[in-house]
């Protein structure tokens, strides 16, 4: 049984592994931290939140200060999908953002008796793309 846990992550209860929802890449022990199987990049936040007023002349520009804020980008090593981002002070250890009780998860879904891949409707796919706000105008 496979359970969609986030937009890009599945837990496969049979193998007890994290799996990428886009490319089926194995992402480690489902009882542990999926981040351990990802590729990580320390992004200068000014590249994402670009200055709107001149950084040569002003201290505050609409861009985060790289001395205060970094953006960690977590990529799937199989398909390079950006699974998660994390805003951290420079050097702060990354956060373990989810740890699930696999035995409880199994019992919960067995009790439900439904297929998680069918009843959890959020995720990548054509259906959700259709609802993008600026395409049905």
């Amino acid at each position: 049984m496979r359970i969609p846990m986030t937009e890009y992550l599945i837990i496969d209860l049979d193998t007890e592994r994290w799996v990428c929802r886009i490319c089926s890449q194995d992402l480690g022990d489902a009882r542990g931290n999926y981040k351990e199987a990802t590729l990580v990049y320390d992004r200068d936040p000014r590249e994402i939140h670009q200055p709107i007023i001149d950084p040569e002349r002003y201290e505050y520009t609409f861009s985060p200060d790289p001395g205060y804020c970094r953006i960690l980008e977590y990529y799937c090593p199989g398909c390079a999908t950006q699974i998660e981002t994390e805003y951290l002070p420079p050097g702060h250890p990354p956060t373990v953002d989810m740890v699930w009780d696999i035995d409880a998860l199994r019992a919960q879904w067995q009790a439900r008796g439904t297929d998680p891949m069918t009843v959890v409707t959020y995720g990548p796919g054509e259906d959700v793309q259709r609802h993008t706000a600026h395409t049905h105008g």
């Binding site: 937009e7 890009y8 861009s63 200060d65 999908t81």
Partner: peptide, 11 residues
């Protein structure tokens, strides 16, 4: 959330 970015900063 799930690979998206947050807001910028505001002067």
């Amino acid at each position: 959330m799930f690979g998206g970015y947050g807001c910028g900063t505001y002067p």
